[in-house]
Design a protein around this nucleic acid. Structure first.
Lengths: 143, 143
DNA sequence: CATAATTCAGATATTTTTGTCTGATTAAAA
DNA sequence: TTTTAATCAGACAAAAATATCTGAATTATG
């Protein structure tokens, strides 16, 4: 099986998009997030905890506490979330797993793959989560 | 960590490219492949064994046996190797891990990602391993 | 024919990723 | 002030991916 993002990252992106569909500052419990998205509660809770460290999510403890988006959705790029969870290794490491793959010592796929990878990077870097508001609401409602 | 291909697939692609740089039918032992590519011998051996089932690699037992390419390199697509090892899930599954993601019930990234994914698929589907002969030889020599 | 070098099958081991549990702390609300 | 509902920290568990081992079967070559 091959994968673009780890489960952690998939869940993190799902959760952040979900939170961004709420009104600013509204606290959502890990319980609600987990049951709406159908993902393990403790797991998504851990992920969001870690995202508070990157100033993407924020949280409030105690009764009627929960998670929320740390800043305006227009300030959060998809890439920020990916970077915080999975890091940028996919965009740096050789697609064939060769060590020291670089422009000067390229693997056979270096150039062809480089172009595709760059497109993916640019997309994640250009898109902020506010751009997905409507699509997110639609998707969440369909779950 | 995120990844495009599994280690298995990376090693499989490396090994197949390596074999394709040899003269047709030349048998190469798992030992040589492993030491040239710096990857675990038993592991690459297993992978190549599995690729004999897909008619991509072939093998000969016994002294001066080894592995070789099962057919002309111009007949082997990169995608064949990926398909045989990792399957095509990356190209089918939702990038955000949402279930039932489809044109009719798309996830927020469905369209943007779909385009990139399609490009990657087409590249792997268009490129046959003979096209990489020279680059492969260069890379192997640099290891 | 004996030996050496190989693939091959299947079991086992290790590491990483994914997921769960427990109890402590916090804070709103009854 | 007590209860209730939440995050949080850290340990633990399970599953998947990666890697290794052992011995059997095969086959070229001395």
């Amino acid at each position: 099986m091959t994968v673009i993002f780890s489960k952690k990252c998939e869940y993190g992106l799902q959760a952040i998009l979900f939170l961004s569909s709420k009104t600013r500052g509204e606290r959502v419990s890990a319980d609600e997030i987990a049951s709406k998205l159908n993902i393990p509660k403790e797991f998504v809770s851990k992920i969001l905890q870690s995202l508070t460290g990157s100033n993407i999510a924020a949280s409030k403890k105690g009764k009627s506490g929960g998670f929320y988006i740390a800043k305006d959705p227009s300030q959060i790029k998809l890439l920020d979330v990916v970077k915080a969870i999975d890091g940028l290794d996919v965009f740096d490491n050789c697609v064939l797993g060769f060590p020291h793959c670089s422009k000067d010592n390229p693997c056979p796929l270096h150039n062809k793959w480089g172009k595709l990878r760059e497109d993916a990077y640019n997309m994640l870097n250009d898109e902020t989560i506010d751009k997905f508001y409507e699509k997110t609401v639609n998707k969440i409602n369909s779950l």
